[in-house]
């Protein structure tokens, strides 16, 4: 057995091991049990008095943030629940823009979920009881993708719904300098 043959055999073995990394994410069609134990909105608001440290990230964040399925489902809900009516396709209108780096109530995924679930003054309705926890978190994941916060491989380049715009992965986003977003 030549050393060259052995080397290529080794390379093949390493390649086969690398295949294991292809498992991208879990596609959960039902909210995880922990979804029911902690209601959306349990996390504290973004305004932290003094120099106190912000509360830890909600345990569900890892299930939805950077999850391609959650982002795609959230995108459908964004259209179906008529978020477009006020926020447009992220550019804002009657409601604030969602594709910039400004977050009035925090840009962490649990903070966005709180905003959707509880509503905010001056027009943002509360969606708790109208959407399930799972759907609210899907929406929050999508809202984060509007400002390019999730990693690019999680964002669909071709939306599941009709769109006349440039694919999201091709849209350049400015660097975000939001302190909440930077904390993760």
């Amino acid at each position: 057995m030549s050393s060259r043959f052995r080397a290529s055999l080794l390379l093949l073995g390493v390649g086969a091991l690398a295949l294991g990394a292809c498992d991208r994410e879990e596609h959960h069609s039902r909210a995880k049990p922990i979804g029911e134990t902690v209601p959306a909105g349990a996390s504290a608001p973004t305004i932290f008095p003094g120099s106190s440290t912000p509360p830890p990230l909600d345990v569900r964040a890892s299930l939805y943030d950077n999850n391609a399925n959650a982002i795609a489902q959230g995108q459908q809900l964004y259209m179906q629940m008529n978020c477009v009516g006020c926020h447009s396709h992220g550019g804002g209108g009657m409601g604030p823009a969602l594709m910039d780096d400004e977050w009035r109530y925090g840009g962490r995924i649990d903070q966005i979920a709180t905003t959707i679930a509880e509503g905010r003054p001056n027009g943002m309705p509360a969606w708790r009881g109208k959407l399930t926890e799972d759907q609210i978190w899907d929406l929050a994941a999508y809202v984060r993708s509007l400002s390019g916060l999730p990693s690019k491989d999680a964002v669909s380049s071709r939306a599941e719904s009709m769109s006349a715009g440039t694919p999201q992965t091709l849209t350049p986003h400015p660097e975000t300098n939001n302190s909440d977003a930077a904390q993760q």
Binding site: S29, R30, Q73
Partner: peptide, 16 residues
């Protein structure tokens, strides 16, 4: 009660 167990992936959520 649980559409996701009868038609997994359907857009109707399991509300519980």
């Amino acid at each position: 009660e649980d559409p996701q167990s009868l038609k997994p992936g359907v857009h109707m959520p399991t509300i519980g």
